[in-house]
């Protein structure tokens, strides 16, 4: 009998936020174009560890499976990335799956990233339209601005940029690169620019842009290739300008 190729997965398990963590190993049947999500589904269909012990299916977040919903971020072999696009054939085995460490743990690989959505509220990441009734066309936007704004608008709020940032830790509430980049996006839009001042102010309190220590890990971790460091530099300049102007005008 031909030996079937196996995939060895090592998952960090934790039944809840206050429960102890433990590791479990699984041995799965290899198939072409397997990714980390397929592995987790295989485990759910047959939740038995490598040494034959019955266990529970693994709790994890996933939705679109094509890297556009932002759900399935986790640490894979120590690296913050999306599980759906983590192809088994490109990963060293045993493949280690761990939850992101900078967000409150829910269970196993699922974490709570509500902090990011709250931060979007804090910086007023929206265009303040008067209403949804018919008010005619929006402002004209040059292709140049669109080509700058569209990549920023691709942010899937996955949290990878926060996970890799040394400034995101238990000692401060740094909003992180994704949020700063959203401020740049809305400040760039002709209507959004009308509230530029408010957004910059929101970024100047505790956890604001001054917390960035320029480690530049964020830009490398972003699955969407968003120019995050460029965003931080630009918003930082604007914030300083505004602060200085405020000081001069007293």
């Amino acid at each position: 009998m031909a030996e079937t190729k196996q995939v060895i997965i090592r998952v960090k398990r934790q039944a809840g936020p206050k429960e102890p963590a433990r590791w479990e190993d699984f041995s799965l049947k290899w198939r072409p174009s397997m990714n980390a999500i397929i592995c987790l589904r295989d485990i759910a269909e047959n939740p038995v560890t490598r040494d034959g012990k019955k266990t529970t299916p693994i709790t994890y977040d996933s939705n679109c499976l094509e890297e556009i919903c932002g759900s399935c971020a986790m640490l894979i072999n120590g690296k913050a990335r999306m599980a759906c696009s983590a192809l088994v054939d490109h990963l060293e085995q045993p493949i280690r799956l761990e939850p992101m460490s900078k967000f409150p743990l829910v269970r196993d690989l699922a974490v709570d990233r509500q902090f990011m959505f709250e931060s979007l509220k804090r910086v007023k990441a929206w265009i303040p339209i008067d209403g949804t009734y018919d008010l005619g066309e929006g402002p004209r936007v040059s292709p140049e601005v669109q080509e700058k704004g569209y990549p920023l608008s691709n942010c899937i709020t996955c949290g990878n940029c926060l996970e890799v940032c040394p400034q995101v830790n238990e000692h401060n509430q740094f909003v992180g690169a994704a949020i700063i980049s959203q401020v740049r996006l809305f400040n760039m839009h002709p209507t959004g620019a009308m509230n530029k001042r408010e957004r910059l102010e929101a970024l100047m309190g505790p956890g604001g842009i001054q917390e960035c220590a320029n480690a530049q890990n964020c830009v490398h971790a972003c699955p969407k290739g968003i120019p995050l460091t460029e965003s931080i530099a630009e918003v930082n300049r604007d914030a300083w300008k505004q602060a200085l102007l405020g000081w001069l005008l007293g």
Binding site: I129, E137, G138, R140, V141, S142, P143, Q146
Partner: peptide, 21 residues
């Protein structure tokens, strides 16, 4: 057409022509 206008006002980064439309 009114729905497109609304989305445009909400700031959707639609692709543009050289005239900005």
């Amino acid at each position: 057409p009114g729905i497109i206008d609304l989305l445009d006002r909400m700031g959707v980064m639609f692709n543009r022509t050289s005239e900005g439309l």
